[in-house]
Each structure stands twice: as C-alpha cells, then as structure tokens.
Write a protein that binds this DNA or RNA. Structure first.
Lengths: 147, 147
DNA sequence: TAGTTCCGTCAACCAAAGTGAATGTGAGGA
DNA sequence: TCCTCACATTCACTTTGGTTGACGGAACTA
C-alpha cells in the first residue's frame, strides 16, 4: 500500500524536516544531511549514523530510530529528545528555536543581555532603529509572530 | 559464576534492574518481566515488546532499544526517558533552553530576533547605543561574562 | 560542451533489534 | 514422590533499523 499520509508515517520525519529548515546559521542555506551526519560522527568520535540513514529518517522511510541515535540528533540541533515525539515539547521548543539560533551569535547574545532592564520606551526606540538597519542592509523585516 | 560485570551490558541494563528491584507495590515481591511486558502492551493497546526482550534488556543481552520502546518502559516505571542514560546531553540542552526562557521579556525577544543577520558593525553600534541607554536610565553596565 | 562536485534518491544488502517456542529450575500442593 | 505452575534463561528465527554503493540532476567551472 502506498503510504501517503505524512502525519501517520512519522512524527519524527516531520520534526526533523522542520529542524533542517529552521536550524542553521544565519546567512547560510540549510544543512545537508551529509553535513549533519558528518558533524555528529566527528563530534562523537565514532560512527553514529550514515548520511543516507539520516535522509531516510527525514523523509519518513525509517521511523523509529534507536534511542542513542535520536539523542545524537537532538544534541546536534539543540533540542530535547522529547521534541521528536511529544507535541507540547515541540511547540514550546519551536517558539524558542529561532531565538536560540539568533543567540548563537555572541554579539546578539550580548545585545540581548545588555538590553535587559531597559525601559519599554527605550526598547521600542532601539527596535525601531534595528528595523531601519535591517532595511538599510537589505534584510527582510523581522518576523514578529508574537505569542 | 558470580555477578556479571555491571558495566559490560550498559547503563540501560543497570538502571532497568534497579527499577525492577525498587519500583513495585509495597508488600509485594518485584514484578516479573512477563508482568511488566503484559502491562505495557495492554495499556498501549498494541504489542510494544515481548517478555523475552524485556529480560534481554534487563540482563544486558540487548542494549540499544528503539526510542518508542524506551518511552513505554519509562512510562511504566514513572521515570523520565533520560533516566536510562547518563544524560549530560539532556542537561546541556536544558541549560541552552534556560538561557532562552530567561529572556522572557517579549520586547527583548523581539529585539534579538530583529538583530539576527545584521552585520557586525551595526551590531556593535547598537550595543554602544544600548550601553549609553543603560547609563542614562541609571542601570549598571551590562555584565559581559563571555563564553 | 564537457568535467567536477555536491546533493537527494533508490535498491540491495548486512547487522542488530526483537520474537516464539522450548528447556531448566525452584516453590508449593496433593 | 510426582505434578504443576510461574518464572528465568536460551537459541534459532524473523523483522527492521541502518549501511553501502550507484545513479541522475543541479550548480559551478573551464
């Protein structure tokens, strides 16, 4: 039988795809499966998974990985293991994912920490400044899908 | 032959054995593997694992179960999945998420997100501005404990 | 246009996870 | 003593997680 159903086929696939699309250094296109596999293996110092298998997981051909491999993946993307299976963990994590990648830039982390405690008025003024800077540098307006 | 080498079979076996020994209704002897397997399968409404396999995990003959099975076991014994592994991975990701939640001020979130992708020069300029704003508003200079 | 490289995709294969059925053993019970 | 029941243990077998190697297409270069 042709398995078309994307939700039944695998939550893991869905979440993984989402991670690939969203978690990557700014100004860079998404990681390839080969890159991620290589990074994971090198960090671990042993072979954890192959590029092909990672692709199979991502595309739903394989659905239920060994816990140790899932841990390695979660670690790489900086999400808790439960992200791949539990809905509200995923939702909460997603909200923080974009912020977390932004904060992987040391300058931005510094910025955020420095801004902590400032009055709302000042924060708004700063935000306005940043928005025009984005415009000047030819970036998209920052998405503000506030909770 | 005396007790098997406890490290040989892996952490999972050790933890699982401990759970079998300690987690059971008072005034009752420990669950048998068959009991646990049956309980898990009945609760799930489908076959998750066999008694034999559970015993193999417990005794270290099998070491790296599928994540879904591990979840079922953790659920039965009422422990988090991470319990079965020496999970400093989990601890590290948790810390990461803490940083994100710590910055729960929506304005600062917005600020950080908007700043994402800006050039280093602009970021430095912004940081300088923020620093003087702190001064003006009578706040301490932002601590910059790097790393 | 041809050569190179990287990537996603696929199919055949291998190894390890997971099962079923049989054997051994000790505790009751008639 | 013999039977039986519940459990741990073992092993040959099946299933599926995971790998290897190859192919075609897109992007870059000469």
């Amino acid at each position: 039988m042709p398995d078309e159903n994307p939700t039944e086929g695998g939550v893991v696939a869905e979440r993984l795809t989402h991670l690939f699309n969203t978690v990557h250094p700014a100004g860079r296109k998404p990681y390839s499966t080969a890159e991620v596999a290589k990074a994971i293996n090198e960090k671990a110092g042993e072979r954890i998974l192959s590029p092909t298998y990672l692709w199979q997981l991502k595309s739903g051909k394989r659905t239920d990985p060994t816990h140790s491999r899932l841990m390695a993946l979660a670690d790489f993307f900086g999400v808790p293991v439960a992200y791949f299976y539990e809905d509200d963990t995923a939702r909460r994590t997603d909200e923080q994912l974009e912020l977390a990648t932004a904060l992987s830039n040391p300058s931005i982390r510094q910025l955020a920490l420095a801004a902590n405690g400032l009055s709302d008025g000042t924060l708004n003024a700063l935000l306005a400044m940043i928005q025009s800077a984005r415009h000047i540098e030819g970036l998209d307006p920052a998405s503000d899908d506030g909770a």
